[in-house]
Design a binder for these strands. Structure first.
Lengths: 238, 238
DNA sequence: CGGGCAACTTAACCTGCGTCATCACGATTA
DNA sequence: TAATCGTGATGACGCAGGTTAAGTTGCCCG
């Protein structure tokens, strides 16, 4: 079941068994990808979308000086570039961060679903809107939080999403990102991310290693990052 | 024709006459709103969405200290909170900035459209994804640009969107935002926005007044703000 | 015509984060 | 064994933008 984690635990939608089957049967191919592999380049027409099964992926925008800003990261269960179905061309690049396994869904299959199962299309739409809600939370993070708050907010978000995917127990998870990755997410330099991580460690808010992130007291970390998980639309949270 | 500007000039979609009529007939009410009126509060269930006909609206997230981060602004023709149709509850507030005229579209009408006109639903979906693309450009702006670049980028974007809506000639437009508004958009203080606007004026890049924004050389301003309009999906741009 | 208020302006000062530089560590390859 | 490379760690220094405070301007309304 490649779609096992898709829309899992989301408030406001339940994927029915026949809808899940229909999605499964829309998968044309399953591929494994090496770390740091570019899957989609901005401006190139697309005729398929990608469901992430295993690993971490990213979406990013390059600036003129070769620096880049990550605009999203994806965890298993995310339909990474489903927005390419209506848009056909993307405004950003998509790449793996770690090694990854993905399922390819041709747009022509989604076209058929659109005519046969409009309620399923609404659920697919919904999933792209959660990505947009996460974009907004990232805007808040960059616009209103200091460096420590940004990193704390990001780690809280990632923890919550991985709990939802069954990949974190709420206190510890494997992530596989470098400090430079965090800097591209949080709009900081890697030097300053290093300082912030040290401070988080000293204050016992979080121990970050590429291999393993540990959060002894998630509520304290959330308070420091002004993290409120409502925007993730996770069911049964409160 | 209240939907006159909706999806106007967008690459990749054309709203057919019968689709436009169907949308028109889905409007239950047209309202005028005073400036700085809150229309939607985060967390409140919604059974309708709002098409902006005239004026400027905003979406924003409050922080713990009463400050806020704008996550979007909307110009006439935008379906401001169409994402509430699949989501039902929003993660942020929606308010007018200037006086505004809006059309209300009940979700039950959209439900009917979903079953009758799946291609129109795909176009509605598309319009919410352009909002998401704009979110991403805002992330780039906050994460990678300095203060002057951020303001320049925002003004270029707004100019391009208003040209598309037929409300800017490419060099001048009425906007009705204050310097404090710009600061909430660009993640700066209003004091520093004031300094930046002076510099833009001195360098003849832009004259910003609440009533009127003038951009003598849009290309120079775009270069300074690393603005590339592809993410707006405007047709016939290049 | 004057009082009040929101928006704008400017200056003086301070600090969080960027920049630059150096070094350490572990993994990979020869 | 050494050479290379990606990643992490840390210190010295500078500056963009925040903070605070004190005006000014313009508009609404009695």
């Amino acid at each position: 079941m490649f779609t096992e984690r898709f829309l899992r635990d989301k408030s406001g939608v339940v994927l029915l068994p026949q809808e899940r089957e229909r999605l499964e049967s829309a998968i044309s191919e399953v591929r494994t990808l090496a770390p740091r592999t570019t899957l989609v380049t901005a401006g190139e027409p697309l005729d398929h979308s990608t469901l992430l099964i295993e690993g971490i992926m990213s979406r990013y925008i390059d600036d003129r000086n070769g620096l880049r800003q990550l605009v999203a990261i994806h965890v298993p269960g995310d339909f990474v570039d489903l927005h390419a179905f209506p848009l056909k061309v993307l405004d950003h690049d998509v790449a793996t961060m770690t090694a990854a396994t993905v399922a390819i869904v041709p747009h022509r299959k989604l076209d058929q679903i659109m005519h046969d199962m409009p309620e399923l299309i609404r659920k697919l739409w919904y999933s792209t809107l959660i990505d947009a809600a996460i974009h907004r939370a990232w805007l808040f993070r960059l616009g209103r939080l200091d460096a420590l708050g940004r990193v704390a907010h990001f780690l809280c978000e990632t923890n919550a999403r991985l709990v939802s995917a069954g990949l974190s127990d709420g206190h510890r998870f494997a992530l596989g990102l470098t400090q430079a990755d965090i800097s591209e997410i949080c709009g900081l330099t890697s030097v300053h991310v290093n300082r912030v991580l040290r401070q988080l460690r000293e204050e016992q808010l979080c121990v970050f290693r590429s291999s393993l992130v540990e959060i002894p007291d998630p509520e304290r970390l959330a308070a420091r990052g002004q993290f409120d998980p409502d925007y993730l639309y996770i069911a049964h949270l409160k």
